[in-house]
Design a protein around this nucleic acid. Structure first.
Lengths: 212, 212
DNA sequence: TGTACATCAGTGAACGCGCGTTCACTGATGTAC
DNA sequence: TGTACATCAGTGAACGCGCGTTCACTGATGTAC
């Protein structure tokens, strides 16, 4: 068995289990059991549980950052002061999230749940890791989003950005729960793509409605 | 020492520590250490760690439910088909959350963080407990909120409700982090009440903006 | 071509540690007669 | 009023368990001469 098989099997199982249960609720024994590899293989390949958690995020965030940088580079080819509107920026972000998860063969909902967990669970090392490895693209994207909403003061923009992130992370990471309630109470099925299509206009409304 | 002292000391320390670290990341030894009571006192008074987690929520949710029921009763005294507008309902909810936390001598932010954790951490017993003991008032409130937004289909309303809950829980539970970034980047301090004042109009906008 | 050695993915068993829980016990207070 | 008993909040020490990590080892593959 090639090394990549074991590493990839561990990353896939860890993505699945971490997104379902959280980090400290998931043991290495559960992960290696599901991946059908030896318990010691995690420490052999990654060094520690913390490093495995970071690797799970790097698997998504590295290609996502590259894709977004490419899109922003392409947009700025026309001139140095790019200006994209709010909706275009949000749609671009969701498109690339869906593209990355599809290439990795993972469910996009799992990735959104992981992002939510990175914010809400106590994993200081993880937040540092994400800022260090993904902060540049993040700030580049946020700066363009702010530019697309010139009506706000920086502080108003900042609050609304957080409201939006909360709505997006919470909704997409609880997608399966919301979906099953919709099924039970309204006899209506829904897909992640439909949820995003419903969410983008709401997000734009939330971001662009006038101050006070 | 009267029983209430020990019980209350445990509940206070647990509220503080759970909201900061999460449930499985907080050990009974840490809680009893901070509360300055014996380790075995938790199992003596509450029976188990799970029961302690539920008691921490009951301490907030029981009085909150009672207060909201009273407010809704008072509003419906004028006639059986109450109709309150969206903003009034949201303001009422936040007012009562602030009132309850003040009476308990706890920081409202901790309570919001606990609510967020109840959604995002794996604690099935807790979600069952909350629905069982607080579900009635919750559904009564949501029904009135839906009534205040007649322009939406039930499904549209349902999605927007989730967007709003995500934005509220995420923002208020990350309040301290947001506050310190605002301080550092914009040299501006902010309070929880100001954040809520800024949030309510955004929430109303998010809920009431037209479909598609 | 053959032999000796190095590299490296992977393994099985054990390590110490912190966890939630249990249990026999204490000592103060209240109750019955 | 005095004595025996019951109740109950609280305690100290130990329990077994699952955890992340470590370590000596294996066996296959590649490299040097």
């Amino acid at each position: 068995m090639a090394q990549q098989d074991t590493v990839e099997k561990i990353l896939h199982a860890a993505t699945l289990l971490f997104s379902e249960r959280g980090f400290s609720e998931t043991s290495l024994r559960t992960i290696t059991g599901m991946a059908e590899v030896n318990l010691a293989a995690v420490n052999y390949h990654f060094g520690s549980k913390k490093a495995l958690i970071q690797a799970v995020f790097a698997r998504f965030l590295r290609p996502l950052g590259e894709k977004i940088d490419l899109r922003l580079d392409a947009a700025s080819a026309n001139g140095p002061d790019v200006s994209l509107d709010t909706e275009t920026l949000l749609e671009m972000l969701f498109e690339e999230i869906l593209a990355v998860t599809e290439e990795l063969g993972e469910d996009p909902q799992r990735f959104m749940r992981l992002l939510g967990l990175a914010y809400t669970q106590t994993q200081e090392h993880l937040r540092h890791y994400i800022v260090e490895h993904f902060g540049e693209t993040y700030h580049r994207f946020i700066a363009l989003l702010e530019k697309s909403l010139p009506q706000h003061t920086p502080i108003q923009f900042y609050w609304r950005l957080y409201f939006m992130m909360g709505a997006a992370v919470f909704t997409l990471s609880s997608f399966e729960a919301i979906r099953s309630i919709l099924n039970a109470d309204y006899e209506q099925d829904t897909t992640m793509v439909e949820a995003i299509d419903m969410m983008v206009p709401s997000m734009v409304g939330l971001l662009s409605s006038p101050d006070d």
